[in-house]
């Protein structure tokens, strides 16, 4: 399974993703410069975290017009996996692959922390490796991560079961006390209707090496590999 990690000017989590997919999971991985347009050899596209184009105007607003994004759209529309993490999630909303927007945190702070999340469903590739676990802890690092969408969009996301991760309290309660940034419905990660595009503010790639204290994020990547193996054997 070949991973392509998009690199914009200002991306800063690209190498962390490459470390996970290439060094830990031993999968072929290529960094893709934002001015390139060819993703034909790539199975999974990762839009990494960082501050693409300095977050000018709005987070992700300028990155959306990069040459590579046309190919990312085609990749997503072909049903292949696209993962947006943090700034990558912001870019995916700006380009219209995911609904809603990420706005300034409720309390105005840039939050750099490790927070508990609930896993809302286990029957999709992104979360299947977490079977039996309903809660994980992942790092977050953002100033503009408060998920916002209009009431109709929120209702649609909920009805279609497209919220995959929610912020929660240490005891697992999805309530205001466990909501670090004020996201509507405690949303930390959502997927598109087809399920192949996932955007999330928490950083699974920063919790994938036991030497760094946690492997709670590794399951996300392992789930993808598992789905690929299933596709090959069927």
């Amino acid at each position: 399974m070949k991973f392509g990690v998009i690199v914009f000017p200002g991306s800063n989590c690209d190498r962390d993703v490459v470390y996970v997919t290439q060094d830990i999971l031993k999968q072929p991985t290529r960094k893709v410069w934002h001015q390139d347009t060819d993703l034909s050899d790539i199975d999974v596209v990762v839009v990494p975290g960082g501050f693409s184009y300095g977050d000018y105007l709005r987070c992700g607003a300028i990155a959306r017009f990069s040459a590579i994004m046309r190919s990312v759209l085609d990749h997503a529309q072909a049903g292949k996996p696209v993962l947006g993490i943090c700034n990558g999630f912001q870019i995916l909303t700006e380009v219209g692959l995911l609904p809603g927007a990420l706005v300034r945190n409720r309390d105005l702070h840039f939050i750099c922390d490790r927070v508990p999340l609930t896993i809302e469903r286990h029957d999709c590739p992104w979360t299947q490796a977490y079977a039996g676990r309903h809660e994980i802890n992942l790092p977050i690092a953002h100033g503009e991560g408060r998920y916002h969408a209009d009431a109709d969009t929120l209702a649609q996301l909920e009805d279609q079961g497209r919220v995959l991760f929610r912020y929660c309290s240490p005891s697992g309660a999805v309530d205001e006390s466990g909501n670090p940034n004020g996201s509507l419905n405690n949303i930390a990660g959502i997927c598109n209707e087809a399920g192949n595009v996932l955007g999330m503010m928490p950083h699974p790639e920063r919790a994938a090496d036991a030497q760094l204290g946690s492997t709670d994020g590794l399951g996300l990547f392992q789930g993808l590999l598992k789905s690929q193996l299933a596709a090959v054997s069927s």
């Binding site: 706005v103 300034r104 409720r106 309390d107 105005l108 916002h148 004020g182």
Partner: peptide, 11 residues
């Protein structure tokens, strides 16, 4: 109007 503006509240 429906979007919370924490910066506005702080100012």
């Amino acid at each position: 109007p429906s979007v919370l503006d924490p910066a506005g509240t702080a100012v």
